[in-house]
Design a protein around this nucleic acid. Structure first.
Lengths: 110, 110
DNA sequence: CGCTTATATAATCTGAAAGTTATAATTTGG
DNA sequence: CCAAATTATAACTTTCAGATTATATAAGCG
């Protein structure tokens, strides 16, 4: 599965959101989705692994997952082609600069 | 179908790529995919319409499709959360500025 | 060692997505 | 009007992603 397919799934985006804050062992991620079974989450993690969106490191029996930067950059590059369609008022650049200066995550503008 | 799901499909991304250069009637888009039938492409166009990624305008019997900026901005906003993970070397900003200055589409860096 | 804990994999089921053929709807030109 | 052209929709089939249950694998602990 490619990166586009990987992030198309809401649960997987939620996993990425959790990992964006901090790395977590698989069990914690399983617990974060009470409506899903452990194998279901494990399968999502496998897909995220295979599409290079996350890293895993062993810690005893635990498997600690962390976000992996590179893969999402592919999405960003794809968006480059289209960015000019809404970017002409420089909003995107302003957001970009703002995010960098403050070092924090920008809130939605609208 | 949401925007993430819409762009997850390779054919639909190819349609967006074609529309990024210029607007095109449905028939031209159908012709661009010789391995698919007309209804198959028409269905993809419907999905792109419903997810607000394209606009349609009637021209006689023709239906002229064009790219619609707003929807992809949602993807861009989602990426904002993760951008800092690969943006620390300022590459993303440089690309951003470069693309704006040159007014052209940046080639892949690697 | 076994037993428990943590996670992954296998086998299977199910529903949704995407493709096909056939047909409808709409506009235009003669 | 009628026929051709263009596009959309309907009905159906097939493929595939995502879920479940059951089981395997592997590490830590008494």
């Amino acid at each position: 599965m490619d990166v586009f397919g990987a992030v198309a799934e809401p649960t997987r985006r939620a996993v990425l959101d959790l990992l964006a804050r901090r790395e977590r062992p698989a069990g914690e991620l399983v617990a974060a989705f009470p409506t899903l079974t452990q194998p279901a989450v494990s399968r999502h993690l496998r897909i995220l692994r295979e599409s290079r969106l996350v890293d895993v490191r062993a810690d005893g029996t635990r498997r600690v997952y962390s976000l992996r930067p590179g893969a999402l950059a592919e999405l960003d590059r794809w968006l480059d082609t289209y960015r000019r369609f809404w970017d002409d008022r420089l909003d995107g650049l302003e957001r970009h600069l703002d995010a960098k200066k403050s070092g924090s995550v920008r809130r939605r503008t609208k």
